[in-house]
Nucleic acid binder design. Sequence first.
DNA 1: TCTGGGGTCCTAGGACCC
DNA 2: TCTGGGGTCCTAGGACCC
Length: 420
Amino acid sequence: MIALVDCNNFYASCERLFQPRLQNKPIVVLSNNDGCVIARSEEAKMLGINMGDPGFMIEPLLQQHQVTVFSSNYTLYGDLSDRVMRTLGHFSDTVEVYSIDEAFLDLRSFRHHNLTDYARQIRNTIKQHIGIPVTIGIAPSKTLAKMANHYAKKRKKAVGIHCLDTPATLREAMEHTPVQDIWGIGAQYAKLLVKNGFNNAWQLSRAPEEWVRKNLSVTGQRLYNELKGIPCMELEELPPKKKMICVARGFGRVLEDKHEVMEALASYTAMVAAKLRSDELAASMIHIFLQTNAHRNNDPQFFRSLNISLPVATNSTHELIGHARRGFETIYRPGYKYHKTGCIAMELVPHNQVQYGIFDDKNRERDARLMKTIDMVNRSLGKDTVRFALQGYSAGWKLRQQKLSPRYTTRINELATVNI
DNA sequence: TCTGGGGTCCTAGGACCC
DNA sequence: TCTGGGGTCCTAGGACCC
């Protein structure tokens, strides 16, 4: 059996952990730039606030019900996530960290245990040691474990655990799972399935396999077998090798000044370079793009992107910024209100396996030492302490984060204070 | 009358996930 | 005024090769 452990309303729960007065109060967390709702406490869900609602559009509702709003604080969530995952490691030798708030646990060697009791133990330990509430679903395959978890959240909230270990419990959960709630079925496939008379997971698992293969491709066929209880997806303990590294962001406001857009692109490129180094990778190609705000119907729209092949794979900040700048010069057009830009590193190779070029005259070893030093300084004194000229100092494109909470667990000067 | 066929590589686009 | 960001996988179709 496989368990899926999922943190409840994770970002909202993280924020609440350090502000106990928000217990039983509605909370929402907004995406970058304080854009859309990406997490809600139960109380906020009950008010009819949906995932993805733009913050400014639900402003009256937030005020009316005194909803506490937070900007997203990934430093805090990442640290609490690490603690949860480390704790899960005590309960199974095989843990796949699937996302910041979810993990699959292999419980196949626990055949003689009462798995519901074991799950209760996991749940209590995480609540006690870290303070985050979790829900646990247990079933014969990953897809069914996801379904069990979903079922527990919807119908057994108080218990927070659901185990699909008999044909009857399996069928019951599947009949109560509409196709769009199946892991791997999105809006498009759900529409197609309903049109063809498959409304819930049970019905889909009874569909002709040929039809599934033809209409949902091989991923759909895998999913179909998982629904039948035949595991087709193994647990991945090691994170797979990255194929790309992307930093892209909308600006706090639209930009019409070429240099400001370039500063943003240079800064995102520098972030890509730092990520490459921390993963010990180098990029053989970068992709850059810039675009206007598609939501502003009255503005002329512009989108352009460019692939840039690099003569020698690199993770050096100034080299990557140099390539990005030359690319930017060729795709930039004046006269538009720019909203977003980004840099994507592709064709990644391990940094110690880079092929040098015959005509390459750069001193790459000296460069690597310089980058190491910069990373060290920025790690200890803050992300932007050392930066390159092109990144600039104008804050016009910086993120909007008006409701940012302290990084309680990772910065000594942002510790929580307790009045007694 | 009949107008090759099998293979690879690349890219764009669509679908999905959290 | 204000609508997220970072990923993966699969397929179809074109270019090219022999």
